[in-house]
Design a protein around this nucleic acid. Structure first.
Lengths: 300, 300
DNA sequence: TAAAAATACTCCATAGGTATTTTAT
DNA sequence: ATAAAATACCTATGGAGTATTTTTA
């Protein structure tokens, strides 16, 4: 069996045309090199070097084999260079799955700080619902998940990031719009619009309002559709704080204490090989979110 | 140090996502493969596979390294394929040096039969004077030499091929042109034209005619110039039989016995690694030349 | 005779085997 | 409880060293 070192031996001998000199540059003894060259020629079954007395010639077959060996040496050097480059614990490609009710509102605020804090990381963003995030994580298709806790994955490492408050989202014309505060118990559940099955936000809303699972209400396929339905006076809904962006015809009414929230977290497999990236990412999102949520509070 | 087998291990594990199955296809035990994979990751300093319980994932860094490993495997496979192809003792590239007073007249008759007898050989023809043939052989720039013997190379393997007779080459108008035979001693040496210094044919002519080395005569830089000078009635010369082609204004007068000849031979380094090609080539030239010279004799 | 490479031998690192334990489902 | 991988331990191949012989210029 040939090793990468054998390739070096071949090319050193080709270059120096002397077993002694080639052995020196390879930092081995001359007999060691001689025997390895013989072994290589044995393994390949081809004479590569022609020992003509004091001179060393390269056979025509050897010529093509040495050229190929040089190609292999290059590819091998590339392999080691790549390995070297990816040794950095803060370097790599990270595929991150984010739930649709959070990603579009949080990620834009994260990208710049993340690229500043982890300049060697390439981010690949996937928008997936909670269960798909978990499945993709467990199947190794993504490396991290950004979603609402709790999450049922066994082998997942979870970091709590921040509590995202809910606000009530109503039409500007709605009675509630005049209120400066609402209590959850005051909501007319008949008017609630929910996201369709599969979005965790739907379950969160049901829980916050202590609604029956089987309840039939209007359903929306995305948070933006949901908001449009509210604007069109088809009802009201719970809106996560980060998604509560100012829009025409829409009012957000804050809740009285205790303010309902959902727990946002970052998850990855326990065996994920770059925990440094995971922790730094979690820390950064925490800081960013704290600042962001705080500025919203003061603005309100 | 990594070996080509390690590359196979990596790619087998990538394919099967199971140490046991990968080990089976590599015909080693599962622990052997496990340890080698660990060694490879150690050597590269990068975790390539992520052992997540029963599942095996490929790390983002591992992905690029495995792709590179696949490239190396391809190049290595090519190396072995090339080696396999050149194992044939009758296959290869042969660089052959031929003297100018022989090559142009003999080689055209050889090429077809050679390609028929040795279809796997690629011929590279070099036209060189004797001393350059020897030097190129000794320096490994060519593999065989086709020239007039004797030749002084120490480490050269020589095969006698055939004796090439000389004829006298005169102008059609020359007195000698009417003769059906000449004796060497009858030649008027004053009229001799020779090739310039460096051509072995010059020395052969001097020897055949027992002429003084210092003799000053007309000189020509090639056999064709020489023939043109004869045609222009500037003198006469010795012409090797194969070069004695019919031409306007030129007559060739055969010599009486003992007919002067030069010994044509094929040489290569004793260490030349494809002696089969050398011997087959020598045998073929012998046969061809015999037939060729015979047909000339009967024609005369 | 002097150089360079090949050979002889010795040693040790390590690849690979078998048996067993650990781990995760 | 089962299946898969890791660990422990042993063996043996072969890579590399030193000393020496052979070869050739």
């Amino acid at each position: 069996m040939l090793s990468f070192r054998d390739v070096d031996y071949l090319l050193a001998l080709e270059e120096h045309r002397s077993f002694q000199k080639a052995a020196d540059t390879c930092h081995v003894s001359q007999p060691a090199l001689s025997m390895q060259i013989k072994k290589i020629e044995d393994v390949l079954g081809v004479q590569i070097f022609e020992r003509a007395g004091r001179q060393l010639h390269i056979t025509p077959s050897g010529r093509t084999l040495l050229d190929q060996a040089a190609r292999i040496q290059e590819e091998a050097a590339d392999l080691f260079a790549m390995a070297e480059a990816s040794k950095n614990p803060l370097e790599g490609r990270v595929r991150i799955g984010v739930i649709p009710t959070l990603g579009p509102y949080l990620w834009p605020h994260l990208l710049d700080p993340l690229e500043k804090a982890l300049p060697q990381v390439e981010w690949y963003l996937y928008e997936l619902r909670t269960e798909d995030v978990v499945a993709a994580l467990e199947e190794g298709r993504i490396d991290m998940g950004l979603l609402a806790l709790p999450v049922e994955g066994k082998a997942l490492w979870q970091e709590e990031l921040f509590e995202e408050p809910f606000t009530l989202c109503v039409s500007q014309d709605h009675d509630y719009a005049k209120r400066s505060f609402m209590d959850v118990s005051e909501i007319d559940l008949e008017q609630m619009i929910l996201l369709e099955e599969g979005h965790c936000l739907r379950d969160q809303a049901l829980e916050v309002c202590s609604m029956d699972k089987g309840i039939s209400t209007y359903q929306a396929t995305s948070l933006e559709t949901l908001r449009q339905m509210v604007a069109a006076r088809h009802g009201l809904t719970l809106m996560p704080a980060l998604a509560a962006t100012e829009m025409p015809k829409i009012s957000y009414v804050p809740f009285k204490r205790p303010i309902p929230t959902r727990q946002i977290g970052l998850v990855c497999r326990r065996s994920y090989p770059k925990p440094e990236i995971f922790e730094k990412t979690a820390g950064l999102i925490r800081t960013q979110a704290a600042g962001f949520l705080n500025s919203m509070k003061t603005a309100a």
